[in-house]
Write a protein that binds this DNA or RNA. Structure first.
Lengths: 203, 203
DNA sequence: CTCCAAGGTTGACACTGTCTACTAAGGAAG
DNA sequence: CTTCCTTAGTAGACAGTGTCAACCTTGGAG
């Protein structure tokens, strides 16, 4: 036993994968390093040679989720029309949340390991937010950086909020029709366009 | 020891309070029933006479947070102008998240006990959402229930997303100016008004 | 050849949730 | 008054956890 790992020498990698699998099955709370070790046919202390604590392996898993997320946003279809591009970005965001609920929940639906203590975890999150700001900056009518930041925050709030809500089982409990839920994405993106859109802006 | 509780006979109540205090200090993960018992000067098994499991005491705490939250929304200043009323509701929502971050995190920033298994926990959440739908229904231009639901979902997404984002330490890590953050609430509520507002609606 | 660090093992400790069995108090039924 | 059952509490045990410390093994640098 422990053959696979000793040979390849990537016990660290195997730990991360196994951890993700465990989280996928039973949620973040069900993750235990001893379980990881057991499944890999390795002593219960072995993972600690690669991760100083349980928090650190969680941070690693979450960090990878952020990386995968940012990459997904980068791969979205591009458009020269900034409004269409913004729509693509939003769709891409919600797409990811729908297709990878596990990752999404890890990033946003779970108490994170203290970001100050795991800064490498946040790098990719910055990346994703920067992408959003670039796109917003391409829209007409926003001169100052402050304007861009505010609307980026607004836009992020909307998609993040929607994604979170759609992931909880709460929606079914709130008496919403299925049709409503399936239309929600398109409707919400439309509303963002309404809010930021070419339509008259006062103030 | 155990005097206070035996006398008053409200050990259950004391447990809930103590649990909340523990969560406030160290987060939800740091809550242990044994610790609760210890602080109340009572045997480690005593709390189990009032809560079948750890999940149940969490559900109770979260349920109370929802109740307090719904009550706070009900106490908002009312207005006959439906747009102002909507603004008040949004402000009230964000107010609560800012003033009671602990409660807010419990309701929305933490993996909840399975709602299906703790239905009483969700009752007040329904209440809060119903309040929002009423307010939206008061706006002109939305005929069908489906329209109302969609815009309610949109509005909820925005404020929920913003509240979540403002609560994480992430904002500081993303290079946002403090001024931006303090303006975010007003700006976001303005954008909601833009999106739902008297300005032209197509479709 | 020696030595040493990296990666892995074993054993221990304190802590957790939860099961089971026991006890004290108090009220209802006879 | 006695009996009995429910309620609220205690005590002890068990498996499982994160983590500390000490011990092996092995392969390469000096």
């Amino acid at each position: 036993m422990a053959v696979r790992n000793s040979k390849t020498g990537d016990l660290r990698e195997a730990c991360v994968k196994e951890a993700l699998a465990i989280i996928a099955r039973g949620g973040i709370d069900s993750l235990s390093l001893r379980d990881v070790a057991r499944r890999l046919g390795v002593s219960h202390q072995a993972p600690y040679k690669h991760f100083p604590s349980r928090e650190h392996i969680v941070a690693e898993v979450v960090g990878r989720a952020f990386a995968s997320f940012a990459a997904h946003l980068e791969k979205r279809p591009r458009s020269d029309d900034p409004y269409i591009d913004l729509g693509n970005l939003g769709r891409s965001y919600l797409d990811y949340a729908r297709k990878h609920p596990l990752h999404y929940q890890l990033m946003f639906g779970t108490p994170l390991p203290d970001p100050a203590q795991h800064p490498e975890m946040m790098v990719k999150a910055e990346h994703a937010f920067a992408t959003l700001k670039e796109t917003i900056a391409g829209l007409p009518g926003r001169q100052s950086n402050a304007d861009v930041d505010l609307d980026a925050l607004f836009t992020w709030s909307v998609v993040h909020g929607l994604a979170s809500i759609l992931q909880t089982p709460a929606t079914e409990q709130l008496g919403l029709r299925k049709a409503t839920i399936s239309e929600a994405t398109a409707h919400t993106l439309g509303r963002i366009a309404d809010a930021l859109g070419g339509t008259n802006r006062k103030r």
